[in-house]
């Protein structure tokens, strides 16, 4: 068994649409130890969610895995049948979604929706499952759990519903929790509560978390490792310190420049990243970020940059970094 809980190697995934092949993931590699928190950041369409969903075998039609290895907890996900995947989903690997308002089925009670997953993956009786559901609601900080079990989703607030989603996700004590923008649809005060709850539960239950977000603030406070994705590639990977204090890739630098800061002077504007994301139907030959990059060189438009490693963890895919490192290496000699 591998030392990692999650070990994705060179994942390639495309959506075969009528307009042509959309290369959603290109050589994505991710690994994660038990109990670790990995943040995946990037703008819409960069492949964050696709990466996570493919690990659960939930790739939406017409998406297809066309290469790479996906190892999770001793399973070879890419070779598993749908039936085998079902044993894992909701059990060893769970997910919470972006919009708690629509992620619960409106016609069933909270209790029904929590006990459903418990009864599916364990052989608990109806009564035991109900007791466990009550316990879970308490765990995620919902008051009057007995009453809530009988309520319907529309009777709860957004924050409460997301807590219920977390309760469902944690029902079978998964090894890995995927959080797909779990706080995007919530009020700021509720966001903080939900993140705090997730961190608290992670420590209590010892699960690993993959946090998918476009909010750098969220990853900064939660994640040990951060992967920055752009156009279906990981363009920079490192510890939170690496990403926030020593960003190397021009895209990461741009992202960080676009966050509002407390010490921003009055009337000072945030610096946006100009241009629009690449069209994955017709990706450019070279670095996908080159058309938007201030520091783009000739070679960036022609060839895909290789991986430049800075230390055991931190790496980028950028010609500029490659050039700088080579110059540094040369001057050392």
């Amino acid at each position: 068994m591998s030392e990692y809980l999650v070990d994705i190697k060179n994942e390639k995934l495309s959506f075969f649409t009528p307009a042509g092949e959309v290369k959603a993931l290109n050589d994505v590699s991710i690994h994660l130890r038990e109990g670790e928190v990995l943040g995946i950041v990037g703008e819409s369409g960069s492949g964050k969610s696709v990466t996570a969903y493919s690990l659960m075998g939930l790739t939406a039609h017409p998406g297809k895995l066309i290469g790479g290895e996906l190892n999770f907890n001793g399973h070879q996900v890419e070779n598993m049948t749908e039936k085998e995947m079902r044993q894992i989903r909701g059990n060893e690997i769970s997910i919470i979604f972006q919009d708690p308002m629509t992620s619960l089925n409106p016609v069933y009670t909270i209790g029904n929706q929590i006990t459903e997953v418990i009864r599916l993956h364990t052989d608990k009786t109806k009564q035991e499952a109900k007791a466990r559901a009550r316990e879970l609601l308490e765990l995620v900080g919902i008051n009057e759990p007995e009453r809530r079990l009988k309520q319907y989703p529309h009777e709860l607030s957004g924050g409460m519903r997301q807590r219920v989603m977390i309760a469902i996700a944690l029902a079978c004590e998964p090894k890995l929790l995927i959080a797909d923008e779990p706080t995007t649809a919530l009020d700021v005060t509720i966001q903080a509560q939900i993140l705090e709850l997730m961190m608290e539960l992670k420590d209590k239950l010892g699960m690993a978390i993959i946090m998918i977000t476009h909010d750098l603030g969220v990853v900064a406070s939660m994640c040990e490792r951060i992967a920055v994705m752009y156009a279906g590639r990981i363009v920079e990977y490192g510890t939170a310190d690496d990403i926030f204090y020593h960003p190397k890739h021009q895209y990461t630098k741009g992202l960080i420049r676009s966050i509002p800061r407390l010490d921003t002077k009055e009337h000072e504007r945030l610096i946006p990243i100009e241009g629009t994301p690449v069209d994955l139907l017709n990706p450019p030959a070279g670095c996908p970020f080159a058309p938007r990059c201030d520091a783009a060189m000739q070679i960036c438009l022609r060839e895909m940059p290789p991986v430049t490693t800075f230390d055991r963890v931190h790496y980028t895919q950028c010609w500029l970094n490659q050039k700088e490192e080579m110059e540094k290496g040369a001057s050392h000699e």
Partner: peptide
């Protein structure tokens, strides 16, 4: 196409159960 159908799949429910319990009633 609703989000709760995705939730049902993520729970590990089988296709038939998802269809009859979660989809049909809605």
């Amino acid at each position: 196409g609703q989000d709760y159908m995705r939730t049902a799949r993520a729970k590990g429910l089988a296709g038939g159960k998802i269809l009859f319990k979660h989809a049909l009633r809605n």
